[in-house]
Design a protein around this nucleic acid. Structure first.
Lengths: 141, 141
DNA sequence: GTAATTGCAAATACTTTGCCACGTA
DNA sequence: TACGTGGCAAAGTATTTGCAATTAC
């Protein structure tokens, strides 16, 4: 298991979650995923498919989201997307509305200052943001 | 009817849509709405509730989204949110994850440069973005 | 031993579609 | 008149929940 995997598992333990096989494999699947994935994506991926029920994954993702270990993204699809929160790592997304592909953007995110401003002026707690670009990629256009 | 309402209706006509009572009232409802609204919000609002079916609203919103007159937002709720696109007007959102309230942010959006850069480097067509801040508002915290 | 977690199955919620009647251009 | 649009009802898809059995601590 990579360092991140152990780190994440440790964060789960700290959050009071029990270390079950399902949790371990779910974290592994999220780590290996190239980007945000849906519940169904996860439920159908080889190790998880035979290991546990979709409802279990659903509830695990709920708890993880609750504990701030996983983020639930509202993209344009009907299904929700999930991604691990790696401390100190922020991602913005570029989505092709035609094919539904999701790419991460590596450019430095220009929103942090505004986020700081909002934090101080509104008093919101646990503030974070989602920045998504939508359009039709060259291949689809 | 305000100027915006006429403008928007004109855009619909230009897009080849027929001006029906349902369309007019839907546009009016979207204009009066403080921010993004769900299909159910619209279907239950007084003028529309007795005027037309939910399926009609659904199909109208589809057409309007298709024509670039309405934007469908993926927020964190299960339901999709819709909002009128006012040319030259861009909005970012501040969402309380506790109560689900959605506020518009008036601060100048710091993303336009990055959007330009993405447009030129990736060749995406019809590029636009959604920027949303999530957190727990002071009242809920 | 005890409380958290899980599987299975059923219930919800929201969206989407089919088909025929209707109204706009 | 012709074709886009609307109503009603049913189907589809993703999410959410109840409860008894199981498992981690």
């Amino acid at each position: 298991m990579s360092v991140s995997a152990d780190d994440t598992l440790a964060r789960c333990r700290d959050a009071g979650l029990r270390c079950t096989k399902a949790l371990e494999e779910l974290l592994a699947a999220l780590l290996h995923a190239k980007g945000p994935v849906t519940l169904v994506d996860l439920a159908e991926s080889p190790p998880l498919a035979s290991l546990c029920d979709k409802a279990t994954l659903y509830r695990l993702l709920l708890r993880l989201t609750d504990k701030g270990i996983v983020r639930r993204l509202g993209l344009h699809e009907r299904a929700a997307y999930f991604t691990l929160i790696i401390p100190g790592d922020h991602r913005d997304y570029l989505i092709c509305t035609q094919r539904g592909s999701i790419a991460s953007i590596n450019a430095p995110c220009p929103v942090h200052e505004l986020e700081e401003e909002i934090r101080t002026t509104t008093g919101f707690q646990g503030l974070y943001h989602e920045l998504k670009f939508f359009g039709v990629c060259p291949k689809c256009a």
